[in-house]
């Protein structure tokens, strides 16, 4: 059995969470709330140390923002302070009268996000996927047959998702093949996810049996 207080704490918290399998109880609630508080604190610290300090505080202290070397220093610092001003506007949500002011930074986040997303997803999610699917198929090896299967699967899957035309006749048959392939995909993803969770469960059981109790070697 371990004499490390950290291992004991981790084991007790693990058992508190597992107690939920019986029913919701005070031990689970304790661990759940502790997790909420600690993870919020953890991510806040990580954000301060890895985002706020390197991206804002350090350049501000140096009086120079390396991202815009071509611009005058003072203008660079203005560009650096501007998002802080916008970020502070978010807190206007707590005032009934000024709540609408919080929309400006949110609009900015959505605008920048949308602008970045449009070309990026078309490039990565559409063009790259098409490139990977449209490979030369010579039917000389098993890999070629696999690629052919993937090409047919992608095409029929896309046909299934096309709802502007009624799924009837040849189109309906193609869509049916598409849903079969999608179901195989969903089934295998489900099986894979279950096994990933089971491996996490095994990890926790090994922790309790080996690291904490020392029952297994």
């Amino acid at each position: 059995m371990s004499f490390d207080p950290g291992v004991w704490l981790a084991a007790i918290l693990t058992l508190c969470i597992f107690s939920f399998l019986y029913k919701d109880n005070p031990f689970y609630k304790f661990a759940e709330h502790l997790s909420v508080g600690v993870s919020a604190g953890y991510y806040l610290v990580v954000l301060i140390r890895q985002t706020l300090i390197p991206a804002f505080v350090n350049p501000l202290m140096a009086g120079y923002w390396h991202v815009v070397p071509e611009l005058p220093r003072s203008f660079g610092i203005f560009l650096l302070i501007f998002p802080v001003f916008m970020g502070i506007l978010l807190f206007a949500r707590f005032s009934r009268k000024w709540a609408y002011v919080a929309r400006y930074p949110i609009a900015m986040i959505w605008g920048i996000g949308s602008g970045v997303v449009i070309p990026l997803v078309l490039q990565n999610h559409v063009i790259r996927q098409l490139q990977a699917t449209m490979v030369p198929i010579t039917v000389q090896s098993w890999a070629d047959i696999g690629n052919l299967f993937i090409a047919v699967g992608v095409l029929t899957g896309l046909v299934y998702f096309f709802f502007s035309k009624e799924h009837k006749g040849l189109f309906g048959g193609t869509a049916k093949v598409g849903i079969w392939i999608l179901m195989i995909g969903f089934g295998s993803t489900f099986g894979f996810t279950v096994m990933a969770r089971v491996s996490l469960l095994i990890g926790r059981i090994i922790f309790l049996m080996k690291d904490w109790l020392g029952i297994i070697g």
């Binding site: 696999g146 699967g153 998702f161 995909g185």
Partner: peptide
């Protein structure tokens, strides 16, 4: 199953998601 039908299904979904995300943006 993981290397072929799963890849085909995922690609079809990824393309749909990509087009949907671009349209929403």
């Amino acid at each position: 199953l993981l290397n072929y039908p799963n890849v085909a299904a995922k690609r079809a979904i990824i393309m749909g998601v990509g087009l949907g995300a671009a349209a929403t943006s």
